[in-house]
Amino acid sequence: MTAKPTANTRTIGSHFTRAGKYAVLSFQAALTIFPIIWVLSNSFRTTDQILTSIRLVPEQFALDNYLNVWRMTSIPRALVNSLTIDIVSILLLLAVVLPLSFVIARFRFRAATVIYLFFSLAVLVPMVTVLPMTFKLFSELGLLGHKYAIAFIYVAEQLPLSVFLMVMFMRTIPSELDEAAIMDGCSILDLFRHVIIPLSRNGIVTIVILSFVAIWNDYLTALVVLSRQADKTLSVVLGYARNEYAVDYGMMSAAIIFAIAPMILIYILVKNRLIKGMAMGAVKG
């Protein structure tokens, strides 16, 4: 007899916690999405409309703000800069990370651990600490006027995490493959190019995505190193936007949407891989 009321209270209690759970989760979701929708909505509105009311659905889908951003600001050029600098950096990153990870993952020699630790050191050092002297180095080497030289810094910055993930992926390839390939007369280079690289495709895609997002979103390094106005990336140009066309709310909103649209697209396309990769990277740090 006493069991019944207890069971009832429990059910009521669990309904209550369930409702509470959804309330908290929905509140947080709304809080997260509200600013983005608000900015998106404002990007279609006139300054007068923005001054009059807050709307999550615009009165009209006018593209004037986008056209103004496209014609009157350096955002389109910055978009191209972000893209090209990112691609060059990723290619250079792969060119140095893949052979290094291959050696660390597939060869047996005592120094491997030391080398691995050496390349992990940068994780402990904030970018902001080394950047002034990197800037100095760039000026001494005459690299400051060269748009793509920043790729050297991005690669050095992305190296620790990329090596960690790549070595982890390459170690999952059965080691019998190495022995067999060598027995068949494969050179080390053949083994690397025709066996290990194709089998590491998954890992390569992961580090490409993670690095692409990290480099795209970088602000500090680009701010310090890209000295020519024509070379500035999106993040840097956005940072200035507040002072340049601060009063034009619609244009600022459109500029933000320009900057975040490519990342949101990537997010939609490769969400799970991105989330998993970032979580793995954190546990390393």
Partner: peptide, 25 residues
Amino acid sequence: MGTLRFRPVVLLFMLPAFVLYAIFF
């Protein structure tokens, strides 16, 4: 730890990463 025997040529595989990391970090 891998299984392949160390040989000097692997140093060449590590060189680009080493140079870049040494100079720019």
